[in-house]
Amino acid sequence: MSVSLSGQLINLLAALLLLIAFAMLSQRRVLSLINLFAWQGVVLTISTLVVAMSTQQQHLYYSAALTLVLKVIILPWILHRLIRKLNVKWDVETLINIPTTMLVGIMLVIFAFNLALPITQLAGTITRSTLGIAIAIVLLSFLMMLTRRKAIPQVIGFLAMENGLFFAATSATYGMPLVVELGIALDVLVGMFILGIFFFQIRETFDSLDLRHMEKLKDE
């Protein structure tokens, strides 16, 4: 694959990722949110593969496979099962209304691009222009965690943030060492399980997954 073509492809995929991040931010339904998260995983897998092919970095193939298995198949499946079991297909409630959130999101993207500017000028990787997008995805996912009231969207925001970090790593330095990536993948998986158990416990205790109820837990 020629360098210019793969460069174009990666830029396209990065744009797609950003688009999906915005879509997640504006999404009102939990089910679609999970599907969007799975799509983000798909795009991430493809972009990692493209980078791997154009740079001949062996370990990136493994990373791509890991992403595919974990973020496209296992995690969405667990999330789907969770909402079926908890019977929570309701609409997503937000703290701030969605247009405002989008506006804040745009500001964050501008901030992220500005932040990445000196690094992109210095970097020599073919993926350098995508670093700003990666940072933007991290910040947007964080914003999603901030503005959602229920527990499951927050967890999806957390997972999406990890996607952004992964993308940042591939685009800035052709990925982290495989050991680190394996470790993070395992962390995400275990974290997911623990959060799943927490959901059941929270619902048992408060009869709802609304996190406002947890305000009582503070020290008086």
Partner: peptide, 23 residues
Amino acid sequence: HGRIHLYLMYSFVTLLLMLVLVR
């Protein structure tokens, strides 16, 4: 406060501030 959103807000604002400082 006991509000998760506020706690997240603390980290978010800290993150942004540190990024601004770095840049």
